[in-house]
Design a protein around this nucleic acid. Sequence first.
DNA 1: CAAATATACTATTAAATTAGTAGGAATTAA
DNA 2: TTAATTCCTACTAATTTAATAGTATATTTG
Lengths: 148, 148
Amino acid sequence: MLQKKTKYAIKALLTLAKEYKEQKPIQISKIAETEKIPRKFLEAILLELRNQGIVGSRMGATGGYYLSKHPEEIMLSTIIRSTGGPIALLPCVSLNFYESCAECVNEETCGLRDVVLEVREASIKILSKTSLADIIKRENKLIKKFKV
Amino acid sequence: MLQKKTKYAIKALLTLAKEYKEQKPIQISKIAETEKIPRKFLEAILLELRNQGIVGSRMGATGGYYLSKHPEEIMLSTIIRSTGGPIALLPCVSLNFYESCAECVNEETCGLRDVVLEVREASIKILSKTSLADIIKRENKLIKKFKV
DNA sequence: CAAATATACTATTAAATTAGTAGGAATTAA
DNA sequence: TTAATTCCTACTAATTTAATAGTATATTTG
């Protein structure tokens, strides 16, 4: 399961994406309000996303956060990883959060690992081709669909 | 990520599967030892698996646990669900652990949910066609592969 | 039947992770 | 210079997960 932190991050980034215009900052408080995210928590999350290079910021009055890339270039897999959420089901198949299993005699011949690897591939295939822009597109399609 | 509990469950069930013979019980302590799982914790896990109908048990001397079905019929998805591990990335797309998102105005038109649904489908497709027997088969294949 | 050996069950504790808060420093625009 | 904003560090609270303790109940075997 994704952490709340990750979900908040995605929602916040979607807000930035919807009003995307290069370097145009939006304030934390505005995002927190529209997305119903605890203000201070969001502050911490955006700071982290900034350190990861996903968003940029401007300090001072009229400051705020903005996407550092076009919404088409920011992938869901990147966001999940940047906010600490491993995608894999077991640490032994995680690229970014790898850890070997204490009990495993031989990782290479572990049948469970083999399956879990497949699951990871399938998940990453979807998550790494889906951008913020894609999510917004999907949203619009769904709205149309349910209006009819 | 799968919980340790789930991983222990899978390992324990694989042990039972490898020595499978209808209704032939194996003791907790033996499984705990070969799989390096804390004895008492495993006890609790097996009890749960029993209440879920995945294993059967016999009390008293010479008692123990045994698979209630053939290893080919026990699927990874079932084990994960039975030990409390949701497969979906968000509760709003989980079949067995469903919960709506507090902030979501309309679930049906949520773009993120739409993507996460796809990921779930892909994962379940693999996990629900993989049985204990399949995992063992994979293991044997891998052993052969790495021997050469 | 008694002793030994299992699981069944309930309750509790410990550890780890995740979520959220507090408060002041630094920066910028007006 | 003031107001508005992000930056940063350190905490605290809440929740979840992992593990343990101890007793009750059932079963086999001598």
